[in-house]
Write a protein that binds this DNA or RNA. Sequence first.
DNA 1: TTGAAAGCGTTACCAA
DNA 2: TTGGTAACGCTTTCAA
Lengths: 340, 340
Amino acid sequence: MSQLPEQPIEGPVPTSADVARLAGVSRATVSYVLNNNAAVRISDPTRRRVREAATELGYVPHAAARSLRAGHSRMVLLPTGNFPPAPLHHHFLHELESGLRRLDYTVVQYGSLGLDAEDAARAWAELRPVAVIAPGSVPLTPQGIAVLRRSGAKAVFTLGPEPVAGAHALIMDQRQVGGCAVRHLMERGRRRIGVVMPEEPALVLFAEPRLAGARQAAAAGTARIEPLPLHHDEESAAALAARWRTLGLDAVFAYDDLHAMLLMRALQDAGIEVPGETAVVGADDLMLGRLLRPRLSSVRMELDTVQPLADLVDRLVRRPGKEPERHDLLRARAVHRESS
Amino acid sequence: MSQLPEQPIEGPVPTSADVARLAGVSRATVSYVLNNNAAVRISDPTRRRVREAATELGYVPHAAARSLRAGHSRMVLLPTGNFPPAPLHHHFLHELESGLRRLDYTVVQYGSLGLDAEDAARAWAELRPVAVIAPGSVPLTPQGIAVLRRSGAKAVFTLGPEPVAGAHALIMDQRQVGGCAVRHLMERGRRRIGVVMPEEPALVLFAEPRLAGARQAAAAGTARIEPLPLHHDEESAAALAARWRTLGLDAVFAYDDLHAMLLMRALQDAGIEVPGETAVVGADDLMLGRLLRPRLSSVRMELDTVQPLADLVDRLVRRPGKEPERHDLLRARAVHRESS
DNA sequence: TTGAAAGCGTTACCAA
DNA sequence: TTGGTAACGCTTTCAA
């Protein structure tokens, strides 16, 4: 393990011209060799000399120059906004990234918090991505989409609870979650159902459609739905628990398992029996729910496998469709434990 | 709100030359106007004509061409690896990103899972970032650092539990966490202390230094430390609880609050009283811990404010220091509740 | 099998 | 005040 002293850390960045000079060939030859261009035959000794020269200089090609020349990039841009609300998302994004990398795309996340929709779209467009996949938590407007398309983006996706006009849509339909929870509660005889509405901006985006799904499911039966604003702190939960009996509810869908845990604790501390007096259902099916007493019923969400999605992105990049496509990614089902 | 029909979505991407043509000026003038170049005086009517032409065409400058011409970019690259183990990290990264954007850097996250250290460094170097900040969960070798420096990166940072030779270090010293927990337990009279060691690869990176810190603190007193491998599932926790009394421990530092909750539940189910027979301490000080019974003692971690860090990055980019700098970001302190 | 040269979109220098 | 032009690093066509 030498210190590679022949590679001075300072000084100009080596270019393909430097490699060519050192190898005693032209820049074209360097490009042919390093890109394994099959359309042209280069002698083995030349190949070796070029490779050695590149290694010796520590040459790394310049992506910007390359894509400038090529007229297009293979960059897929993933704007990031608020903290990802769900752990599921994290896993999903990583998978998607791997899937796209397998197809030889370069996936890049770009933080866009605090920019308005237009400025953000312009900032993304400067990078000339071939595709943009914008989570629901970042703003995406028809104008923004137009800017992106105009700057060469072949496909623009929204990835979230609801579609956006003009963009392809990868939908994680949160209404299913609310619907699932409420149907589960109705099957177990509950009719007066609260729905926790967190007030953190990052969660409102998901909370609204969950409530809508809950309402829809309730309307199909004879249940009543009561939205319950709740901050994720003990005071807020205690306050809600204190006025619980005035609400006349026999069940609550608590938005997710963390809020369910918070509320269940507060209810128990207020002397309200779970599930006897009030049933509680969360969502996410975290392991934590199984550790509570009573064990927490939950709504389990499953996302489709991701490689087909990466293939979809690839397809739409290669043959940009006229019509936005819509794909539903999420499936939800209730998991019954002890709290309902 | 017109549909902007004069901006066809298809067709070639408009360039500054198109803007110049439409405005009836030269490309140079377009550049001057759009970049608000103060070194040159342009008449107001010309300015207006250029601006209008740019808007009409939906012109967005091409970042790659710009940085090619400039010879450098203002891109700060944040490789991402495994899932971020701690929520704290998330918040931190967002803050850092905002801080750097305020200094006019473009922050870009680049998923690097599954690449070896050298390949990853080469992939990063292709983007010619001016700085790289690599979390501890992505591999960073001296060779990789050399590649990056050689490709023009002015500053390379590691951001994690321990320094890396040749890179600036933003250290979140996890030994403090273990040390804190063990000192807290010793102060409360415990002497035979288990330390939970999660086996998920993403957590091992943090678990090892936490154990080291625990050992160090124990050595300063007369306590004994016992590492306890544990998967994050109920079976593993139940198995550990089943043989608990054979271990002869009177306390356990459970790595973090989630593992603490898991283990505490298993211990209670096995009839072991907490904190009577065994004290339990977690880490992260999650709200969840306050909802458990007994309420969970924890180690609270605080990170320094982030803007000074962004300034630090900026300083090192502008005046690349010869010597790697080291900065400690983390402060830990025990929070006593009921489980210890 | 290899080389010369053009051109991608941008900015900065120098001249008008 | 504005325009022409060269150059950034790379790939690819055409010619040798």
